[in-house]
């Protein structure tokens, strides 16, 4: 998968590396903003109230 993406990125290797890092950063950002808050709610891992 990772090799496949690398082969399909345009440009010489420094450009590819940059694009790759930006892609990963965008993915991590999406995880932190949308996926993880959802997972935290869905799995009830930090509840502090009685009832």
């Amino acid at each position: 998968m990772y090799a496949w993406i690398w082969r399909h990125l345009p440009g010489p290797w420094p450009v590819r590396l940059l694009i790759y890092l930006i892609l990963i950063a965008a993915l991590v950002y999406a995880l932190f903003i949308w996926v993880f808050p959802w997972a935290e709610d869905a799995f009830n891992i930090s509840e502090v109230t009685v009832g």
Binding site: F32, A39, E40
Partner: peptide, 25 residues
């Protein structure tokens, strides 16, 4: 190779989730 990459990715995401709950929140 695909299975290996998937498992590495899943591991990295779980670690990131730990970082999120302890610090990101």
């Amino acid at each position: 190779g695909g299975v290996g990459e998937f498992m590495l990715t899943a591991g990295a995401i779980v670690l990131l989730f730990v970082v999120y709950t302890l610090w990101g929140t």
